[in-house]
Amino acid sequence: MTSTTPSASAGPTLEVRGVTKRYGARAAVDDLSFVCRPGTVTGFLGPNGAGKSTTLRILTGLARADEGEALVGGAPYRSLSHPARTVGVMLDARALHGGRTGLETLRLTARTVGMPASRADEVLEMVGLQGAGGKRVGGYSYGMRQRLGIGVALVGDPAVLILDEPANGLDPEGIRWMRRLLRSFADAGGTVLLSSHQLREVEATVDRLVVISQGRLVREGTLEELTSESGTRVTALDPTALRTALDKHGIAYEPRSETELEVSLVPEDMGRLALREQLVLTSLGASKGNGLEEVFFALTGQLEAPPAAAEAENQPAPAPIR
């Protein structure tokens, strides 16, 4: 009998407070704040280069924030007395030593974090690698490495899981396995934060979402809140002036047709913006609830359709909408 549930009845809260991280003049993370509570699976979304991995590295003590703080149960990761017994982390499956066997990797982890050696066999079975425990990690496929990486995160029987792109390389069965694992972990009171590009997978797994773009928070809420909320479909007499006004205020939008835009504002705010910018609107209305994919593209200013890609590149970072 194996256990995937956290040992504590309620895991610690993950808290990112006003974190800013700059590399030269560029802010990889810009005054980012969000909270992940016990019993939830939080999806951490954003386009490439949005600052997700940097935030996760700051949260796990692998990088330092220039401003703000990232806390696990109220304390920085580095100050936890037994971090791997509190937080299971899988940031990069390539960080596993290729010259060690899967079982030895888990046994070494168990010894490091103060768990019995039998925990390694238990976790190996839990992640579905019992047939490959004696094989060197260098010979593993990427999906097998992902499973082993998740196994390493689970060895310490933590109450929090932080996973960066855990579904990468997993086959459909593996993705289903991971979904069940995270769900049961959270249902038992654990706290889960996972970043992913696989929006449909995220939609099927998470309760809450934190969406960032260019290092800034653009939206935080439950999956229902985000997907049921409508954006606004708008057309204007002068579409170019409309786009210019949206760009000027950093409002994310996505073209729906040659003249119609879907804007990440409620109709009321869109009307106010039009008034301020003296735009003549020819139609204005709330759009119906969208899937996560549409919400993601709308919030981050990323365009799904290739023909519109050039326009997307010119969009500034969207303003936070709370």
Partner: peptide
């Protein structure tokens, strides 16, 4: 070999 990442996650000191 990048395995320092796991080492420092398990032993952050």
């Amino acid at each position: 070999d990048q395995s320092i990442q796991n080492t420092l996650l398990q032993r952050p000191g």
